[in-house]
Write a protein that binds this DNA or RNA. Sequence first.
DNA 1: CCGTTACCTTGACTTATGTCAAAAAAAGAT
DNA 2: ATCTTTTTTTGACATAAGTCAAGGTAACGG
Lengths: 226, 226
Amino acid sequence: MKKKIDILSETPLFSGLPENQLREIEQIAIEKLFRKGETIFIEGDDGNGFYVVVEGRIKIYKVSSEGKEQILHIFGAGEPFGEVPVFTGKPFPANSESLVKSRLLFFPRKAFVDLISENPSLALNMLAVLSTRLRRFTVQIENLSLKEVPSRLAAYLIYLAEEQGRKDSVKLHISKGQLASLLGTIPETLSRIFAKMSAQNLIQVTGRDISLIDPAGLEDLAEHGK
Amino acid sequence: MKKKIDILSETPLFSGLPENQLREIEQIAIEKLFRKGETIFIEGDDGNGFYVVVEGRIKIYKVSSEGKEQILHIFGAGEPFGEVPVFTGKPFPANSESLVKSRLLFFPRKAFVDLISENPSLALNMLAVLSTRLRRFTVQIENLSLKEVPSRLAAYLIYLAEEQGRKDSVKLHISKGQLASLLGTIPETLSRIFAKMSAQNLIQVTGRDISLIDPAGLEDLAEHGK
DNA sequence: CCGTTACCTTGACTTATGTCAAAAAAAGAT
DNA sequence: ATCTTTTTTTGACATAAGTCAAGGTAACGG
């Protein structure tokens, strides 16, 4: 079980900070545990602090009035989330739930803002985190509005392959139902598209293991569709 | 014609800062003019600084491989844009174009980062700006994936009415074609929906002037669809 | 004022994706 | 292991929204 300070130095938000500052940050962090399926916050809650994932997996999502869910992010170890209310003073714009048993660090708003005020590097790191998030949203909006589901899936598989460092196989770390929600569709549609892509010999699906048989074909599908 | 320093004090990014700091900020700002339709930056460009709108209207948008456009934001007076590359070090994730003749202030990256490093309030203001932007994207993703076009339009009309301070009429400040792109659809579809909403006596459309005949009905359409 | 261009609307048609229902497969619990 | 629950798949069908094409209207420059 990792120590708090080790996590801190590994998370981009705190990278490059001198050890004495990490210790200050450590001082204000509160460890919290969440079981699988447990809610961390819901839309409309006041945000009196934000979180960093130590271990586990957290989803941030919206739900429509008819109950359909759209996942905005899935965060893993080292990633901060829930910062928006810290800086806007407004409530959380989305819901958050632990997908597995998770260990988080909670940073109370006031203490953290004080820290940032005295620490320009920390401020710049946080600006970089938020900017990166903005960048990701840009891509997500582009995908939702400009690409069809097969292209989104292909793009996601390529992204996963890169993230996982392998070239021709990926392992889903979420269920296919959750993946559907992340891609802005429903399980039935996703299932059909997996079937079609398999029939076209682009991929081979075995449970959560997916072989990328034709990466170039996937790339083309992701970029140009059809 | 407004002076630079007046603009600075009116933009949320710089609000609450003491005058001597505003003067420092003014020092590094470079005024730039853009004609209607002129490109400010395109996706992939290096961002060596960001902009604040003094007057005019700027669109930030993505284009699909088939040429369909999705507008991400439309920024007006007092709003900053193009900050993402400043803090991520990566290129612009989207394109930017002046919708009308516009006057902008350009803040070179290095000078601005130096300013932020010495000025925690400025850092916190920038964090607030980015967080607010993140919040808006959250809503946009929710709309694109969880609501149908009529609901998105209804929600947008309500938003416009609030923004413009009137209760029962709004004036579009962009063409209907651009509105379609902002809502993630195409002009034909938008036109049909305007016609349908008019037939249902929810609104009355006269060019760019729209009367909200039944605000409660619009609200319901925005929230629960149909 | 007139012609050119851009914008908006309407119609007929296609298609991607969602809905509903049920079966099959996989995962988890007792 | 067997039962139960959850996840995934498949089929038949419905529909929102896109495409293509054409006509109308409004805006603009000379």
